[in-house]
Design a protein around this nucleic acid. Structure first.
Length: 302
DNA sequence: AATGACATCAACCGCCGGTGG
DNA sequence: TCCACCGGCGGTTGATGTCAT
């Protein structure tokens, strides 16, 4: 047993002795953590946990913050664009989840890892091939990724038509920015009701949008369509060469500024996509993985 | 309506590398 | 150089939600 293991075990002892809590976080704990970080910033997680009055390990606090409480987290389903990027980056880097996550702003390594395991590996299993096999990589690159691009293009077309029909006035005035910046925005406009109730006005300002995983986000940005077009152009080429470098580098960072975060937002090459992308409506994400398509299109892969 | 199977995801675990005393 | 501490990473698990029968 190495030193690290001993240290982890000692934390375990504390847990067993009742000094530390484990398991799901309560609303009260979340608020303690959020407020403490709002006041003092991130870092030194072990001492942070103690100072904040949390009976949690530093690791647990860090994980909770990074994977759930951070204000710049993106909520909702993995979009087709993101799926495309994940497939491409995974083919390049393998299970380097944190590295992949760096190219999907607002997404966590945990989220991407979960996506990969629940969706992609599931289909590899259905195909009865190893997820790391060349066969499966070929299926991804030459069948599923081009199919994703098709879906993205179709969605872009539909989106453009819809946007032309009813562009919300709010977008013309940058209401999305206001969501993150307006000091007048009531707390409970962004925090789930139970948080607002428990906090009793002690929450940081409304920059903490979409805290709860059950909270649905706002509306779609007009930049989405522009990005779709660019992405699809790039991705069409990517269907054969999958040059995601281009896809990544072409996109200027566009992150909502978390007013009270101590850390600078990551400089990442993915645009801010609105919720319409998460709620694909007629876009059946899973149908991309239709086995029928697979059989009909590429029977040689099975 | 009940229930079992399956999917999802938050949280934990073990390990490793970096850093500073 | 050694050691303790810490943060980060990838793998795994268990609770919960959803769907099919």
């Amino acid at each position: 047993m190495d030193m690290a293991h001993e240290r982890d075990s000692s934390s375990e002892e504390e847990v067993m002795a009742g000094d530390l809590r484990r398991g799901p976080w309560t609303v009260e704990e979340d608020i303690l953590l959020v407020n403490y970080i709002a006041a003092h910033g991130e870092g030194r997680w072990n001492s942070l946990a103690r100072s904040a009055g949390l009976k949690r390990t530093g690791k647990s606090c860090r994980l909770r913050w990074l994977n759930y409480l951070r204000p710049d987290l993106r909520r909702g389903s993995i979009t087709p664009q993101e799926q495309l990027l994940i497939l491409e980056l995974h083919s390049r880097w393998g299970n380097r989840w944190s590295k992949i996550a760096q190219h999907l702003p607002g997404r966590t390594d945990n989220e991407i890892k979960n996506y990969w395991r629940t969706r992609v590996q599931k289909h590899a299993k259905q195909l009865k091939c190893d997820v790391n096999s060349q066969q499966f990589k070929d299926v991804m690159r030459y069948l599923w990724m081009p199919r994703l691009v098709e879906r993205i293009q179709a969605a872009a077309t539909a989106d453009a038509v819809q946007a032309a029909a009813d562009t919300p006035l709010s977008w013309q005035h940058g209401a999305d920015d206001a969501l993150y910046e307006s000091p007048e925005l009531p707390v409970d406009a962004c925090w789930p009701a139970e948080y607002a109730a428990v906090a009793g006005g002690q929450l940081p300002n409304a920059s903490v949008a979409e805290l709860s995983s059950t909270t649905t986000a706002g509306s779609s940005s007009p930049s989405t369509t522009e990005w779709f077009t660019t992405a699809c152009d790039a991705s069409s080429a990517a269907a054969t060469i999958c040059d995601t470098d281009q896809l990544i580098q072409q996109q200027a960072p566009s992150q909502p500024a978390g007013a009270w975060t101590s850390e600078p937002l990551p400089s990442l090459g993915f645009p801010e996509l609105g919720v319409a992308d998460f709620e694909m409506g007629s876009f059946d994400v899973d149908s991309i993985w239709s086995m029928d398509d697979l059989w009909n299109t590429q029977p040689q892969f099975v």
